[in-house]
């Protein structure tokens, strides 16, 4: 795999498309076990991201990711804003000064991103948060020598679906305790869209 500026921008655009068309779905997931704003938060944030990216010029992938991070940080709010903001900021830092990102570099960036999210959110795998998608993705990446786009997508999807059976112990859904079981974690679904979009970009690029 190889990621260049064009592809990162395309990644964000595809993410935004998925989020816009699933805005109500994400919100309804968050209504069930949260406060019903996740779709609104993500739609607001990623719309601003693509607006920002389309009106700027970039030399490095890390600059794109930095703008993604800053835009999410300043437009999303709630729990997902600082978490996604942190994830993309960590990727940006990890990829600083690189023009074309190769697979090992990308792998390292995602690892940094997950660590950042875990630290910011003081959460771990199994607590029914977006980490339950990001961490399986890291595990999957660690096992591969080259990135299989299709498998990336299916790994994310499986991980996302698996959040249904978890009992939340972090985030707003934790207040529901047992009643959180049987519902998908909204943040895991939006994280799935991010990786599904990446998978599409990689497939196109291949």
């Amino acid at each position: 795999m190889e990621l260049q500026i064009k592809q990162v921008i395309s990644w964000m655009e595809k993410t935004n498309e998925k989020i816009q068309s699933n805005k109500e779905y994400l919100t309804s997931l968050d209504q069930a076990i949260g406060d019903g704003d996740h779709g609104l938060n993500m739609a607001r944030g990623f719309q601003e991201v693509v607006n920002k990216l389309s009106s700027s010029n970039y030399t490095y992938v890390s600059d794109v990711l930095k703008d993604v991070s800053m835009t999410l940080l300043s437009k999303v709010g709630g729990a997902s804003g600082p978490l996604y903001g942190t994830a993309f900021l960590k990727m940006s830092t990890a990829l600083k000064g690189i023009e074309t990102v190769d697979y090992p570099q990308f792998k390292k960036a995602v690892v940094e991103a997950v660590n950042g999210v875990k630290e910011r959110g003081k959460a771990n795998k199994g607590e029914k948060t977006m980490i339950d998608v990001w961490e399986p993705i890291v595990d999957f990446l660690q096992k591969q020598d080259n990135l299989e786009a299709k498998e990336l997508e299916s790994t994310a999807e499986k991980a996302m679906e698996a959040t249904q059976d978890l009992k939340a112990t972090k985030g707003r859904a934790a207040y529901l305790k047992e009643r959180s079981i049987g519902h998908l974690d909204p943040g895991s679904v939006s994280s799935y869209y991010i990786f599904a979009a990446l998978s599409e970009v990689l497939e196109e690029g291949a």
């Binding site: 406060d35 019903g36 704003d37 609104l40 938060n41 607001r44 940080l73 300043s74 437009k75 999303v76 709010g77 709630g78 729990a79 804003g81 600082p82």
Partner: peptide, 12 residues
């Protein structure tokens, strides 16, 4: 003030 039921962002 954040969005409805959403905590405001750090820059604000």
């Amino acid at each position: 003030a954040g969005e409805v039921f959403t905590s405001p962002t750090p820059d604000q």
